[in-house]
Every structure is written in structure tokens, then in C-alpha cells.
Write a protein that binds this DNA or RNA. Structure first.
Lengths: 117, 117
DNA sequence: CGTCGAGTTTGACACTTGTCGAATCCGATG
DNA sequence: CATCGGATTCGACAAGTGTCAAACTCGACG
């Protein structure tokens, strides 16, 4: 094939995410890829820096307690929230920096792509 | 239980995402929850408004053409990219507004949560 | 110390998803 | 019109995921 014509020109690619980074980010996005988890995160984030008790969250869902607990674990493992046991109850809060990092990644991609020549 | 003590106080919840919205956003995040798709999107977005031919993308992955095509379809169905056939080749470009919307959602949650009292 | 209640872990099961090979579609070109 | 090559679709299968019931852990409280 003659270079520079047809497709497959422009071999230079600006700055795509590296493969290891892609794996890490994908894992985090996977934690957000469930409606229950998104609403959980939203409910926790809505508390403006304060904490949310699990018992508060259970009322908002049709799912059983084990299921909610499972989803909270997924969010915790992804580093999006942290949980702390105090007295009989467990309180969760979000990790703002984790959300901000994802936001910036998407924003950067949007900006780069929107830079229409 | 006595209201106002222990856990389960503060019944008001600021402004969580609605359940239908959660389903829609979760579906979009699911499209981002795979390393291959994340790198595909990144490679396409890195072209700064220009297009990328599928044949360019294939070289960057160990996966076969059908697999890459499948992932491109997922990204397309999620509204994150658009594809256009011209001559023998298919060219893809990202939809900046879709990425921006997700970015804002995460940023808003991060901001709300970071508003530490 | 026995019990109770909040929350998590375990085990099981239906369903979804990433992957590939084979077949198909669709322009272009001879 | 036959053929070729790029890209997608189809069919199948292993691996992963959401869900629940049952069992377990851990403080608190009587």
C-alpha cells in the first residue's frame, strides 16, 4: 500500500492512555456501570462531606441487604468510597479525588476531541 | 427507634440521580468499563476532531477484527462515538458532548462531596 | 454471658459479556 | 460480472456479574 493515501495515514497518535492505565480506569468505570451502585454513590455524595449510614441506604432500594452490601464493597474496592464502623453502624463517605480523576480523564478526552480543526 | 438519635437521622437527601437516569448513566459507564474500549476511545479522541480508520485501530490491539468491531459497536450504541463509511473504509470520531456530560456528572458529585462542612 | 440487631460473607444460580472462527456484507477494482 | 479486501454479523463458549437465602461476625445491651 502506498503510504499517505487511502486510509492508514497519520501514524502519529497524540497521547492515548497506556494499556495498564486503561485496565485500571476500566476497573473503576466498571464500578460505576450498575444503576444501583450509581445511585448508592449519588446518595452518599449528596451528603456534602458528611457520612451515610447503611441503614439509610437500604430504604432507597428494592434489593436485599446482602446485595447492597456487595455493591458497597465494589465501590469500596474501586476506591470511590470509604467505610468506617462506629458503634453498631457502618458509615460511608465518598473519595472526592477519585471522582475528580475520572472527571478529568473524560473532560480531557472531550476537549481533545472537540478541538475541531 | 427514637428519631434523631443513633443512625438513620437526616431523612432529607440533597439531589441524588433519579433511578431512570441511573440506568442510563450506568449503561454509558458500562461502555467504558473495558480496557480495550477505553483505549479505542482514547485513540479516537487523540485525533483532535479528525477521524480514525478502523484499520489504524486494529494494529494497536492483540484482539481480532471481529472483537474490535464488537467493541466499536458498544461505544457507538452508547453514543460515545459515531462511525461513517466512506469508500472501503469506516471512520470513527468521538462525540465530545457525551464525554462532557459524564465528566460533569462526576465532577458535580466530587464537588458536592468535597464540600466538607 | 446470652441475645439481638446491623452488616457482611458464603454458596448457588440465572444471566450477561468478551472472545474467537466462520460466514456475510459491501465498495472498489480489474 | 467476478474477485478482492475491509468491516460487520452470527454462533458458540468460557468467564464474569447481579441477585438472593442462609450462615456468620461484631458491638451493644439487658
Amino acid at each position: 500500500m502506498i503510504p499517505g493515501e487511502g486510509c492508514c495515514s497519520t501514524p502519529m497518535v497524540a497521547e492515548p492512555v497506556s494499556e495498564p492505565d486503561a485496565v485500571a480506569f476500566a476497573q473503576t468505570f466498571k464500578a460505576l456501570s450498575d444503576p444501583v451502585r450509581l445511585r448508592l454513590l449519588s446518595l452518599i455524595a449528596a451528603r456534602a462531606g458528611a457520612e451515610v449510614c447503611v441503614c439509610d441506604l437500604l430504604d432507597a432500594f428494592a434489593q436485599t441487604a446482602p446485595t447492597i452490601s456487595h455493591h458497597l464493597k465494589v465501590l469500596r474496592d474501586a476506591g470511590l468510597i470509604t467505610g468506617e464502623r462506629r458503634a453498631s453502624w457502618v458509615y460511608y463517605r465518598v473519595v472526592p479525588s477519585a471522582l475528580a480523576e475520572l472527571s478529568q480523564l473524560l473532560d480531557a478526552s472531550a476537549m481533545t476531541a472537540a478541538a475541531d480543526a
